[in-house]
Design a protein around this nucleic acid. Structure first.
Length: 680
DNA sequence: AGCAGTGATGTTTTT
DNA sequence: CATCACTGCT
């Protein structure tokens, strides 16, 4: 968003504020002539939340109770009341869900709804920081490190901290990054995190703390922010610069936060500051669906939300419009055993449906075969493929199924797991582009320099330090020959310099870079042809942008999740089956849902069984999975699976389903029926 | 000194 | 299957 536009929106917001107050006072007495008949279209719980006017509110909305609908109608209602769209801030978990809500609100009312400010906490933070980063010692063109960039940066420093000849292994870059991120997001000392969660690294504690301290300096020096910094620095900006906070208060008068159960301490603090003395804040969420504690989220945020304000209204929405009573019985049963929760019991007025199935198969292959068969059968019975989903705990759980689906010619789209943007070749391309935006971006330099043969960490570090101290500058003239730089590096810097000063469009720059990159790709990967297709997709995506920073923001915060083949499939909107991790399935619903690998050791994951808290989280995850289903729910697990990781044979069904009474589920065992598999 | 190739080792979930 | 740590090669 340009500066200019934001200033205008501040003025419109200010101008309309008087209007709001007048209207609101009118509302108290008699109802305004709304275009939408809210009372008719919503149930009581939803209606009350939609009509909530000013002051803090918490909406506890169980799964499938029309939480999104409530938010959509509230946006429409506020705009009907004359509130300036720009002064409403809608913070959501993904950017997709923000734009989807605003789209629905627009359909409901009119185009003004599209002007509501919205996005994720992270994208909101970037918007603000791009304007004010200077105030806290960053350049406005800072680069955003995603998780793997952050790991790479940590890895650079890691080697220096490894003790020679140590008996135990020093934590990997992934672990280190996780410790750091957890420490930031929960506002806890690194030492405490290690003690609680990584006690086997206790001996390395000092080294880890030292390393992560260097990591922080490194980021500052090279004008880099990781995901956690975005929140942290936004908070700093608001705390240390009242002028910024005041500006934000002038801009945003009403704040709504979706999926509040998945916010962490930093985000909660941001919300508190942002809502200011007006406290026009509405938090919406469901404590039973809190599934992001590994990222520092805490259901306590929602549990204790009312305590953060003096007069917080609480609305509860419990009527479920999604699932059959049979599915709800199972879900309620599951969550009944949870330890901490707001009391709630979902009920549905939907007609009676089938009992959920729990199906045991003898092998993984058989589980896949059973699914294929059942999917085809449902389809025969009129359930389209895009109304079915297969959900699983971890992305790799679907590998075997994917093979079977391909054999059976069932088109599918997978969410979660490895993303387009995370593949090495796309990361390489993004790194080149990031350098064009922030030439001090050492992480990107490191990445692209290592692509060259004969260049390792030492040489790369040397070149990078020459870049940061100005010995090497991006310039139109080739001034590197006298500095003893190897030919291939000179060539690369020359190419980058040309692009840096060029007036070409973003996609043209991408094309030039990709042509340079092609020979490196061929050298490195045998399957370069397949990867090259992805790069062509990347160029196509870049055509949509005319601002480099926006392009890079989106690549870091809202990357395209699908690879080329999936994108093509989407265009001819044929029936496509959804495969998804449960985390990525949040907020979605299907007529038929399959949950696979409901096996002790897989789900709950063997990594989660060590603590009550993480088992509780697995339970909520299972709950989320079940409540995605409208009519049909199939839970399956193979037995007698050898688990390479633990060296054990996994043979117990998931603890979450083993205690479910037989009156509310139907249990099956798969057996051979001639050449076919049949249920009995 | 620093790079690249090789065999052992662990593998959740995402903005 | 990718990452790590070691070792031999330049």
């Amino acid at each position: 968003m340009s500066n200019h536009k934001q200033i205008i929106s501040v003025f419109t917001a200010l101008k309309l504020k008087k209007l709001i107050l007048k209207k609101a006072s009118e509302v108290q007495g008699r109802s305004v002539n709304y275009k939408i008949n809210y009372e008719m279209e919503l149930n009581t719980g939803q209606y009350e939340a939609v009509m909530h006017h000013e002051g803090p509110a918490l909406v506890i909305a169980g799964a499938g109770t029309g939480k999104t609908r409530t938010l959509v109608y509230r946006v429409a209602r506020m705009i009907e009341d004359g509130i300036a769209p720009q002064s409403i801030l809608l913070l959501t978990f993904t950017r997709k869900s923000a734009s989807e809500m605003l789209r629905r609100a627009s359909l409901l009312l009119d185009g003004r709804c599209e002007d509501v400010s919205g996005g994720t906490f992270h994208s909101f933070a970037v918007q603000v920081l791009r304007q004010y980063a200077k105030l806290i010692g960053y350049d406005n063109n800072f680069s955003i490190l995603d998780q793997s960039d952050s790991e790479d940066a940590i890895n650079l420093l890691r080697t220096e901290f490894i003790e020679k000849g140590a008996k135990r292994r020093f934590p990997t870059k992934t672990t280190l990054q996780r410790i750091y991120s957890m420490s930031v997001n929960t506002k806890t000392d690194i030492a405490a995190i290690i003690e609680d969660e990584y006690s086997y690294f206790l001996d390395d504690s000092d080294r880890i703390i030292g390393l992560l301290g260097f990591y922080e300096e490194y980021k500052k020096k090279h004008n880099l922010m990781d995901y956690d910094d975005l929140l942290l620095n936004l908070l700093r900006l608001m705390k240390e610069h009242t002028s910024v906070l005041n500006t934000l208060h002038k801009m945003y008068h009403f704040i709504m936060v979706d999926e509040y159960q998945d916010t962490n301490k930093l985000q909660h603090e941001i919300v508190l500051l942002l809502s200011g003395s007006r406290s026009n804040i509405m938090a919406v969420g469901d404590d039973a669906q809190s599934i992001y504690s590994f990222r520092g989220a805490s259901y306590q945020n929602i549990m204790f939300f009312p305590e953060s304000f003096s007069n917080c209204k609480i609305y509860k929405i419990e009527e479920n419009f999604r699932s059959s009573n049979q599915i709800l019985d199972l879900s309620n049963q599951l969550i009944k055993e949870a330890i901490f929760k707001y009391d709630k019991n979902l009920f549905s007025s939907k007609p009676t449906g089938e009992l959920p199935y729990i199906v045991a198969t003898r092998s993984e292959r058989e589980q896949s075969e059973f699914l294929v068969q059942q999917i085809l059968e449902l389809r025969e019975n009129g359930v389209p493929l895009n109304n079915m989903a297969v959900l699983f705990r971890s992305a790799f759980h679907s590998f075997d199924l994917e093979i079977e689906l391909e054999k059976a010619n069932i088109p599918f789209e997978k969410f979660g797991g490895m993303k387009f943007i995370e593949t090495a070749h796309i990361k390489d391309m993004v790194s080149f582009m990031r350098i064009l935006s922030n030439p001090a971006d050492a992480v990107s330099w490191q990445r692209v320099l290592l692509l060259l043969s004969g260049i390792g960490p030492k040489k790369a570090a040397q070149v990078i330090s020459m870049i940061s101290d100005g010995t090497i500058k991006l310039s139109k003239a080739d001034s590197l020959s006298e500095k003893g730089i190897p030919e291939n590096i000179r060539e690369m810097i020359k190419m980058i310099s040309e692009m840096y000063f060029s007036e070409m469009s973003i996609s043209d720059k991408c094309t030039v870079i990709s042509e340079y990159y092609r020979h490196l790709l061929k050298q490195k990967h045998d399957d370069w042809k397949k990867r090259w297709e992805d790069i062509e997709t990347f160029i196509t995506i870049s055509e949509r942008y005319n601002n480099l920073q926006n392009f890079l923001n989106d690549m870091a915060l809202d990357p395209p999740s699908k690879s080329l083949s999936d994108m093509e499939a989407e265009n001819n909107d044929n029936e496509i089956l959804t495969l998804s991790t449960i985390h990525s399935a949040k907020g979605l619903e299907w007529q038929a849902v399959f949950i696979i690998w409901a096996l002790e050791g897989r789900f709950p994951s063997s990594k989660a069984v060590h603590s009550i808290d993480s088992i509780e989280e697995e339970r909520r995850l299972f709950y989320v999975a079940c409540t995605r289903a409208k009519e049909y729910l199939y839970i399956s697990y193979p037995i007698n699976i050898f688990d390479r990781e633990s060296g054990f044979v996994l043979s117990e069904p998931s603890r979450f389903i083993s205690k479910i009474p037989d009156t509310i589920v139907e249990r099956f065992v798969v057996a051979d029926g001639g050449s076919d598999i049949s249920l009995n």
